[in-house]
């Protein structure tokens, strides 16, 4: 089965029961994506598929054949960290770092959703085409990513600096 992972074409054979997360970690040795709960409840396994964030632990790898998958390993370019990664460092967006790969991929997917005007449960006026990523919207939209260290303040600050209402992108 073929996949495009972090821009590279990859061919892999595996048991049909393999999740996308296990394919990445155990077969392809891309151990950046983490297994927290293995049941969709923590977000540590978040990756981007054709730009959209999903929980790779609940995804059967076979369903994602032919798709383009981006993991934390693919975020930096030419030896340069992604701006969001730099902001996480600057704002102490982590302590142990276990949730960080998922937080990063999730925030990048979330920013795309905001750009496309996808509402959240907090969006007051559903007829508006644009979303303003303020503090409450950001926290709601990132609620699928838990941090056991409680580094939320730094995480919110880093995402706000990179993708928030004031940020230029």
């Amino acid at each position: 089965m073929r996949f495009t992972i972090n821009g590279r074409d990859v061919e892999a054979e595996f048991d049909l029961r393999t999740s996308l997360l296990d394919l990445l970690r155990e077969h392809l040795h891309l151990t950046g994506s983490k297994k927290g709960c293995n049941q969709g409840a923590c977000g540590a396994c978040t990756v981007l598929v054709d730009g959209e964030r999903i929980n790779s632990c609940l995804a059967l790898a076979v369903q994602y054949q032919g798709r383009s998958i981006l993991t934390v390993e693919g975020l930096s370019a030419g030896g340069e960290l992604h701006p969001l990664q730099r902001a996480f460092v600057e704002h102490d967006g982590f302590q142990c770092g276990y949730c960080t790969p998922g937080q990063l991929c999730s925030a990048i997917g979330m920013a795309g959703e905001v750009d496309r005007g996808i509402p959240s449960v907090l969006t007051a006026d559903l007829s508006r085409e644009t979303v303003v990523l303020d503090y409450d919207e950001l926290r709601e939209r990132m609620s699928g990513n838990l941090c056991r260290c409680g580094a939320y303040n730094g995480i919110v600050a880093a995402i706000t600096e990179t993708f928030g209402a004031e940020a230029t992108r």
């Binding site: 969709g40 929980n55 979330m110 509402p119």
Partner: peptide, 29 residues
């Protein structure tokens, strides 16, 4: 479904119910 313009304007209860569930990642799947 939640982001669809016709759903949002004609049946906002449906957008809001979906958006009240699960997480961004799970709703994408």
């Amino acid at each position: 479904v939640a982001a669809d313009r016709a759903v949002r304007t004609r049946f906002p209860v449906l957008s809001r119910a979906i958006l009240a569930g699960a997480s961004g990642q799970i709703r994408n799947m």
